[in-house]
């Protein structure tokens, strides 16, 4: 009996066991939700969502595009900052260190308000999509810089010495040794960071970018169906983030050449 519920040393857990235990977890979650909601007399009715199909779809697409654009821009910012942090030129070094330290040490919501004032008002960028992408990229870029810097540090001197010894030039060392090892080490973490970008983009609703969260917020304000709206919102985000987390895990396995 006990065997059905505890992990054993076997490499694979049998599907029946997985199913049984996952089912138990689901029952518990549903029960907690149901009891809590029935205590305040809420009944579920998702049918109204059909009326807002188009808006929800647009918000969903907006979130996807925001996240993709931010991913690209934040990668550029992140790579440049990681290189800058290792630069021999002190100005760039300190600039990048201060940037990464400030961004990672303060909440995104504060940065959104602050930067929207600068980017939007002082620089005159009216387009909220562009402003949103810039703000989000500045934020995520600092985290990506840390991911890349960590991987750069973890490349062993022995590998660089070996590259020299086989006769590689500096360029060839970068191309055939540093980059492949860097990619292998950063790709899983970068994929994970993409999931964070998607979630963090929801905060751009604060500056009225009409993405998924903002759309649902508006819908819930007119229909008063708070629970249905936010539950559905959560499911939509999971549709985006779960596959990405899955890919990230797979990449980790595929690139793990250390053991």
């Amino acid at each position: 009996m006990k065997q059905l519920f505890v992990l054993d040393d076997k490499k694979r857990t049998s599907p029946i066991k997985v199913l049984l235990n996952v089912l138990l977890v689901c029952i518990l979650l549903v029960a907690v939700f149901w009891l809590s909601l029935s205590a305040i007399n809420v009944t579920f009715d998702f049918s109204f969502l059909g009326n807002f199909q188009v808006r929800i779809w647009q918000g969903f697409l907006m979130t996807v595009f925001l996240s993709l654009a931010s991913l690209i821009l934040s990668l550029i910012v992140g790579v440049l900052s990681a290189v800058g942090q290792n630069s021999k030129i002190l100005f760039f070094r300190y600039l990048c260190n201060i940037y990464v330290g400030f961004i990672r040490g303060t909440p995104l919501i504060m940065q959104i308000y602050l930067f929207f004032y600068i980017v939007g008002t002082a620089w005159g960028i009216e387009n909220r999509f562009i402003a949103g992408v810039i703000i989000l990229s500045v934020f995520e870029g600092a985290y990506i810089a840390e991911i890349i810097r960590g991987s750069l540090l973890s490349i062993d001197d022995s590998q660089l010495e070996a590259a020299k010894a086989v006769g590689f030039t500096k360029m060839q060392t970068t191309r055939y040794v540093i980059l492949p090892q860097l990619v292998a080490r950063t790709l899983p973490a970068l994929t994970g960071q993409f999931a964070s970008i998607i979630k963090d983009s929801s905060l751009l609703s604060m500056i009225a970018v009409i993405e998924l969260t903002q759309t649902m917020r508006e819908i819930s304000a007119t229909t008063f169906k708070l629970f249905e709206c936010y539950l559905f919102l959560g499911i939509l985000y999971l549709c985006l983030t779960l596959p990405i987390s899955f890919i990230s895990k797979r990449l980790e396995g595929a690139f793990n050449y250390e053991n």
């Binding site: 590998q159 590259a163 006769g167 040794v177 492949p180 050449y257």
Partner: peptide, 20 residues
């Protein structure tokens, strides 16, 4: 030096192979 190293084979104590 890079040309010179091409004509020399080097074996390290350990960790000299490219891990990837």
């Amino acid at each position: 030096l890079q040309k010179y190293r091409k004509n020399i084979g080097y074996v390290f104590q350990q960790g000299g192979l490219f891990r990837h």
